[in-house]
């Protein structure tokens, strides 16, 4: 990705001793979010967001174990091989990016941030036991019609070669970014026409809890109706990356070992749910759509195409 914006190359590198635990990060994030709210309330430019920290976090020699991998693979419907599913690499590496978002100088509140989109490029299969280096940073703070969005980039390298790169786009609602054009970058959405389904997912109420158990992502909006209500959702919602990873698993072995996997999260999946799914040869490689029958917009769409 070369878009002329500051990248990891120009950022200061901070090496963390280990991948931070997400639980602690959410606690810190909650505190930081509170602090941000306080700052904004008393600040001169209410709702105006500051710049991104020009810092890249690095964790070296990240490893995982077979038990955790297998639990993930079984839950998502991946074959229990020693190749790490691209979604699992995300689970492994993303806490490093999350840690960035809990920095006191990170301009957006972690809690309540909405995962808008995700793109993963996997260059080759990553094997269980390979020592991995994870590098994460934030970039592209920009306005969204509903607030401010930012990309969290995570790169995973093996033997100094980038083998996996993920970009997660988040939206902080109700804030506006500084230093960027104020015109909306959002395109007009095309009216959604439901395709012919190829399948159906039965997502029980505990879907979020089960994914939290294998991913470590215990964001309260996914865990229970009660905790989700506290954050403004009528019921618990499925992790976006869970749904995207299931779609990736549904594509199956046909995706190959090097691919680009995208996801656009339009509407959250309120649990429990039985959405329709289409996984088809509709793009260069595969395209997928997940929607509730009769809905005006899909839950998510995405592609899995050769890298």
């Amino acid at each position: 990705m070369t878009d002329g914006r500051p990248t990891a190359g120009t950022y200061r590198t901070v090496e963390l001793p280990a991948v931070p635990g997400l639980g602690g990060l959410y606690a810190r994030g909650a505190a930081a979010s509170g602090r941000l709210a306080v700052t904004r309330r008393f600040g001169a430019s209410d709702d105006v967001v500051g710049a991104l920290p020009e810092v890249a976090y690095v964790v070296r020699d990240v490893r995982t174990d077979a038990a955790r991998l297998t639990a993930y693979q079984h839950l998502l419907g991946e074959a229990a091989t020693d190749a790490l599913p691209a979604g699992f690499v995300h689970v492994l590496a993303f806490p490093v990016a999350t840690a960035l978002m809990t920095r006191s100088d990170f301009p957006l509140p972690l809690l309540g941030m909405v995962h808008l989109a995700n793109t993963v490029t996997q260059h080759r299969a990553i094997r269980l036991g390979e020592p991995l280096d994870v590098r994460a940073w934030a970039q592209d703070l920009r306005p969204h019609r509903a607030g401010t969005q930012v990309d969290l980039v995570t790169e995973v390298s093996a033997a100094d070669e980038v083998v996996w790169r993920g970009t997660s786009t988040y939206l902080a609602k109700g804030t506006s970014a500084t230093g960027t054009a104020s015109t909306s970058t959002d395109d007009e959405r095309e009216a959604f026409v439901a395709p012919v389904p190829t399948g159906q997912w039965r997502l029980p109420a505990d879907t979020g809890r089960r994914y939290a158990a294998v991913s470590g992502d215990r964001n309260p909006i996914h865990l229970s109706a009660l905790s989700a209500k506290a954050l403004g959702f009528p019921r618990a919602i499925a992790h976006g990356m869970y749904t995207a990873s299931r779609a990736l698993a549904d594509v199956g072995a046909a995706r190959g070992e090097a691919f680009v996997w995208t996801a656009d999260f339009s509407k959250p999946v309120l649990l429990p749910s039985t959405p329709n799914v289409r996984i088809g040869h509709d793009a260069d490689g595969f395209a997928y759509t997940v929607w509730r029958p009769g809905a005006q917009a899909p839950h998510l769409t995405g592609t899995v195409t050769p890298a």
Binding site: G77, V196, P197, T198, G199, Q200, D250, G252
Partner: peptide, 20 residues
């Protein structure tokens, strides 16, 4: 009796083909 990979029952699958 649903297909493990699609979650759809055989009848639902056939319904898609029937409509197609």
């Amino acid at each position: 009796t649903s297909e493990p990979r699609t979650g759809l029952s055989m009848g639902e699958h056939q319904a898609l083909t029937t409509a197609q």
